[in-house]
């Protein structure tokens, strides 16, 4: 079987498996486990969007949660039913009062508008490197938070934004995850992806061989922002009610932890990071309630889960500083094939 056929087959198998989980799980598993799978898939979208700039392009952004927040609020404002809009957001401009969008269009609009926002923000910021871009993007996150709190006609200010229909189901999230993975894999493992990694590894050398550093970074940043906006919309329609502080430093930290733990230079690593952190924190959250083995009772120690989780992160960083996956991918033997193909091609040249 040729390599292309094998890849197509693998993608098909993955799609069928994903679809089986998406549509089968709600019938087999309890609502709690379905929610855990949904949250893992949702966080995977967010972490993948983050990995594009932070992992592959070397622009360590602390501002992606700003895009998630923007996406959540944009889609929320668009999709609240018309009757409720009057009651919840009486000071909206008239044209926003007149209609409400279904879930999918609202999500797409949220993604596109956040991508547009990323163009505006990224154009000046993507000229920066290293620590400076991290601090600058963090500044962007703070600006988004302050705007969300003060634009109270649109967002109800710091109060809870509520009334968003609960439309986010497992098939939706799995579908978006498949699209995100597909687009990102095509982008990262393409000539453009090589340009991204070249910019990350040595900016000067990259520009010396004719790679547009700003253009490369901007494309990565904007694509990441689009999927962050989409993820934000999914989040909004999962929670139903949220406030500006839902999309702030706590979420930033948890997404970055998942990314770094899984491996910054790997798409499957990002997913592995999300799965590990989510499952671990769920297990610990249950264990910290205390339990009994025979006559031996361990009392409830609320808050212990955070301590144990932090300790495990430190251990991982000591023993696997590049994260669980580093920059390798789960490819079921296909990369080896591709690596040899590339090598033979290079030898021919």
């Amino acid at each position: 079987m040729s390599r292309e056929a094998r890849i197509t087959l693998l993608v098909l198998v993955a799609l069928v498996a994903g679809a089986a989980v998406a549509f089968g799980a709600p019938h087999v598993l309890s609502d709690y486990f379905v929610r855990i799978i949904l949250l893992i898939a949702l966080n995977a979208i967010l972490v993948l969007a983050l990995s594009l700039s932070n992992g592959f392009t070397g622009v360590f952004s602390l501002g992606h949660v700003g895009f998630i927040g923007a996406g959540a609020y944009i889609s929320g404002i668009l999709s609240i039913p018309v009757q409720q809009k009057m009651a919840l957001l009486p000071h909206l401009p008239a044209f926003l009062h007149a209609f409400s969008l279904p879930f999918l269009p609202a999500t797409l609009v949220a993604g596109l508008l956040t991508a547009l926002l990323a163009v505006v923000v990224g154009y000046p910021l993507m000229r920066l490197s290293g620590y400076f871009v991290s601090v600058a993007t963090m500044g962007f996150l703070i600006i988004v938070n302050v705007v969300l709190i003060n634009a109270s006609d649109f967002t109800r200010g710091a109060r809870t934004f509520t009334g968003v229909p609960l439309e986010t189901t497992l098939p939706w999230v799995m579908g978006w995850l498949a699209i995100t993975l597909f687009v990102l894999a095509r982008l990262v493992y393409s000539p453009f992806g090589r340009a991204m990694k070249a910019v990350r590894d040595d900016t000067i050398a990259a520009s010396a061989v004719g790679i547009g550093v700003l253009r490369t970074r901007l494309i990565a940043f904007v694509t990441g922002a689009f999927f962050s906006g989409v993820g934000g919309s999914l989040y909004a329609h999962y929670l139903g009610s949220f406030s500006p502080n839902t999309f702030y430093f706590a979420l930033t930290m948890s997404l970055i932890t998942m990314l770094v733990l899984g491996g910054m230079g790997s798409l499957t690593g990002a997913v592995v990071g999300v799965v590990c952190v989510s499952l671990l924190s769920e297990v610990l959250r249950t264990v910290e309630r205390g339990f009994t083995i025979g006559d031996f009772a361990v009392p409830a120690l609320f808050g212990a889960s955070q301590i144990v989780l932090g300790f495990i992160f430190i251990l991982v960083m000591i023993f696997r500083p590049k994260g669980i996956m580093g920059d390798r991918e789960f490819t079921f033997g296909l990369t080896q094939g591709s690596a040899t193909v590339n090598q033979t091609e290079e030898r021919k040249r």
């Binding site: 309890s30 929610r35 949220f242 839902t246």
Partner: peptide, 22 residues
């Protein structure tokens, strides 16, 4: 049946399904 919901709306919704469903 006590759970710590950590003042976080995502955790609150997970805890809710745990209480109701499990």
């Amino acid at each position: 049946v006590i759970y710590d919901s950590k003042s976080d709306s995502t955790t609150i919704s997970t805890v809710a399904s745990q209480l109701i469903d499990s």
